[in-house]
Design a binder for these strands. Structure first.
Length: 574
DNA sequence: GCCGTTTTCGGCCCGACTGTTTTCAGTCG
């Protein structure tokens, strides 16, 4: 069993314990164990099976949780979870995901109305019965209905990082099938969409159909939805993501890859172009009207025969990429290898899980030349944010560290809260001590658009500000961006030389393509950064780079592609 | 439930907003 699956069982048990109003510290222990296990560098199952080692050696895992893990590995559950699921319908886990409802309210709803599912909850709200419960009213009913709607619209979609991990796992497994030479993901995953609905895997080789049998026998395949000679569909893993595997002959593999990568709009435009050239394009190939084959085995060949440069999948949204490819003016998109430093990360000083030294060592291992440590400021009290004194002391400590040298340059930074009125959370003279100040909104996210716009415009006036962090505040599948006049803010940022962040955290991926193109047109420069709270998160950089590519950005648009000396000069000059 | 001892029990992130109250519980970050 994978670490993620063990962590998921612990976390959902913690959720149910919350509804049962159990001791909050005990709940936190389960949550903490879940998060430690999820990011543990080795497979927990291997550790558990090794007689030389003990699970209790893992921080956050004591005797009880070690026994729980043993139970999970043996039978997929444990007694505490069984008891809670006996008491509460599994639907209670879904109810907890609705914004505005917490464990207390859900316990009350179950007690009074026997609410078990989202449908039950929706009915209670529509019948105006929620407001009859103590401390609940009409506004909450509306908020919950909105929450249900948002939850439903995001249900069945998965984060890009999740889909990437699942694709990697399945590709590795299927590629080991005799007779299979190539397995590749297509669809929105290949285009780098922020969320992915289902996974399309394409297989070719001497005997691609062999992969279909192997797929439906995979240990994590639960529910086979269909299987024919050329295609098999099934749900995989606890999360039940739908995966389609298609077996293809080599001569049409490129055409199928092109077709199943999409987007639909891009493909429609491409087929129209083929028709104008006297051809027809389908998933089987590019053909003349007499049905003789022009191309099909490889994707570049198809684009070439259509008079186009090969178009990177991230651009295939019919947003002008076909015209650009025809005129030879596609941008040279940024690559992961262009990134020379990460500029947004947290440590144990606030809500991170590792020390400055550990984060720096990982950055060095990734081949970076520099990093900025950017812990939270004091407005984020729950994260133990830095006040002026601690910030100045931190800047001094970083100067000291750089004198001794860690083999990588460290910049002293701060992720400073932008307060409700647009002022910075820390005083200017403290901010002046730091190399790299990010301004971020973490509170009052439901202001009127005009008020949010002026808040951000005022923040841009701060002379020490280098970067606006996660500029729209969205959390994928969870919270919409806060509304404001993006174009105005981008224009002002461009004018003042304040950069905008492409936050590579898979839950954020903010900014995203249309906004990036708007901002680029306003001469904005960008930073791609991971917002890492753990050394493992530093590897999320690729998702930020993917967003940048979707926004047509080149190396020159992104400041942290600069070599150290030029980067240092650039942020000092601002 | 975990951790770290001041070794066997006490401490474990906290402040603000919201909608509902009429003095605050619940939620969120």
């Amino acid at each position: 069993m994978e670490n993620r699956e063990i962590a998921c069982l612990l976390a959902e048990t913690a959720d149910l314990m919350e509804v049962a109003a159990e001791d909050s510290f005990r709940i936190r222990s389960y949550r903490n164990a879940a998060s430690v296990i999820e990011s543990y560098p080795e497979r927990i199952e291997d550790v558990a099976r090794d007689p030389e080692r003990k699970l209790t050696g893992i921080p956050g895992v004591g005797k009880t949780i070690a026994a729980v893990i043993a139970d999970i590995l043996e039978r997929g559950s444990f007694s505490k979870r069984d008891e809670l699921l006996q008491k509460y319908h599994p639907g209670a886990l879904e109810l907890l995901k609705i914004q505005g409802l917490g464990p207390k309210s859900i316990a009350l709803l179950i007690e009074h109305y026997d609410v078990r599912t989202l449908d039950d909850l929706e009915r209670i709200c529509r019948e105006q019965k929620l407001r009859q419960l103590p401390r609940m009213g009409a506004k909450l009913e509306e908020k919950v209905l909105r929450g249900i709607e948002q939850f439903r619209s995001s249900a069945g979609r998965f984060l890009l990082s999740f889909a990437t991990g699942l694709a990697r796992e399945l590709i590795e497994y299927l590629a080991a099938t005799p007779g299979v030479e190539c397995v590749q993901a297509a669809g929105s995953l290949r285009r780098g969409r922020e969320t992915v609905g289902d996974l399309d895997l394409l297989v070719t080789g001497r005997d691609p159909a062999a992969a279909l049998d192997r797929f439906t026998c995979y240990s994590r395949v639960h529910d086979v939805l269909g299987k024919g000679a050329n295609k098999a569909s099934a749900r995989v893993g606890l999360e039940g993501m739908q995966v389609d595997v298609r077996a293809l002959p080599a001569e049409s593999y490129g055409a199928a890859l092109q077709y199943f990568t999409g987007s639909k709009d891009h493909n429609v435009a491409l087929r129209q172009r083929a028709l104008r050239l006297g051809c027809s394009l389908s998933e089987y190939g590019l053909f003349r009207l007499d049905e003789s084959r022009v191309a099909g085995a490889s994707e570049p060949e198809i684009y070439e025969k259509l008079g186009l440069a090969w178009i990177a999948p991230e651009l295939r949204e019919n947003q002008g990429e076909i015209e650009a490819a025809a005129q030879g003016r596609l941008p040279a998109l940024i690559d992961l290898q262009d990134i020379r430093g990460d500029l947004h990360m947290h440590t144990r000083e606030t809500d991170g899980r590792a020390t400055l030294e550990e984060m720096a060592a990982e950055c060095k291992a990734l081949g970076y030349e520099y990093l900025a440590i950017t812990d939270h400021s004091k407005a984020l009290a729950m994260a133990n944010g830095l006040d002026e004194t601690r910030a100045v002391e931190f800047a001094r400590r970083v100067r000291e560290i750089n004198r001794n040298g860690l083999g990588i340059r460290v910049f002293s930074g701060l992720e400073c809260d932008i307060l409700r009125d647009g002022r910075m959370d820390l005083a200017g003279d403290a901010l002046a001590e730091l190399d790299f100040v990010i301004g971020s909104v973490h509170s009052h996210m439901n202001l009127e658009p005009a008020e949010m716009t002026s808040r951000l415009l005022r923040a841009l006036e701060c002379p020490h500000l280098k970067l606006i962090g996660h500029p729209t505040g969205r959390l994928l599948l969870h919270r919409e961006p806060y509304p404001f006049d993006f174009e105005r803010v981008a224009t002002e940022a461009g004018r003042r030389g304040v950069m905008l962040e492409i936050n590579a955290s898979p839950e954020r991926l903010d900014l995203y393509a249309p906004l990036l193109r708007t901002a680029k047109a306003k001469d904005v420069k960008f930073v791609i950064a991971t917002d890492a709270h753990h050394p493992a998160h530093l590897r999320n950089m690729i998702y930020g780079v993917t967003m940048a590519r979707r926004g047509w950005l080149t190396k020159d648009d992104v400041l942290n592609t600069l070599p150290l000396a030029q980067f240092a000069a650039a942020i000092a000059a601002k």
